[in-house]
């Protein structure tokens, strides 16, 4: 007769590394966009001082944390702080991979119940808007137009091009 076997869940080191890398990059890109893009800048200005939010995967990461201190937006690394205003938690690593490999946009993933949002709604909405704009900068149009509901046609070429170069450079250099 068959017996019950006790099994421990395996690991997914490659997916984890990929997700961690893209979270790191997204975090730095948000930091960069807060300087290079006026809309992101004003979204952050409307948020309270010491505002902190995180994006990452359940049950235990990887995470990225972005916060605002003395009016400056900074990527704060991958460790969850004790207190934060908004936490966007992707329900599992594989869903995280779908989102961060841009097979599913943040907006689409939200409507597919892939994320759990903790925190006050107005703050969470601001974070989603910021992520949307950053996605437009980071991704080629063909992918980004799938990722956001309305691809910003009204942005000037200059905003797109300059913004994109600035954000990529700053994100990579960590400025």
């Amino acid at each position: 007769m068959a017996r019950v076997r006790e099994i421990s869940s395996g690991r997914k080191p490659l997916k984890r590394a990929y997700v961690a890398m893209f979270l790191w990059f997204t975090g730095r890109a948000i930091q960069a966009a807060a300087k290079a893009d006026n809309q992101v800048k004003s979204e952050f200005e409307a948020l309270p001082e010491n505002f902190t939010f995180s994006l990452g995967c359940l049950p235990d990461g990887p995470w990225m944390v972005v916060g605002k201190k003395n009016g400056v937006v900074k990527y704060l690394g991958g460790k969850l702080p004790e207190k934060q205003h908004v936490r966007l938690a992707i329900k599992n690593l594989d869903a995280g991979f779908l989102i961060l490999s841009f097979q599913e946009s943040t907006a689409l993933a939200t409507t597919r119940n892939r994320l759990v949002t903790d925190g006050e709604v107005p703050y969470a909405l601001a974070v989603i808007r910021i992520l949307d704009i950053v996605e437009v900068y980071l991704l080629p149009k063909i992918i980004a137009s799938l990722a956001v509901k309305r691809y910003p046609k009204h942005w000037s070429v200059a905003r797109k091009l300059k913004g994109r170069i600035a954000i990529y450079t700053r994100a990579l250099l960590g400025l």
């Binding site: 006790e6 099994i7 395996g10 599992n92």
Partner: peptide, 10 residues
């Protein structure tokens, strides 16, 4: 995978 769970299989 990556859930850190333990489970049984029959």
């Amino acid at each position: 995978g990556d859930s850190k769970m333990t489970f049984g299989l029959f």
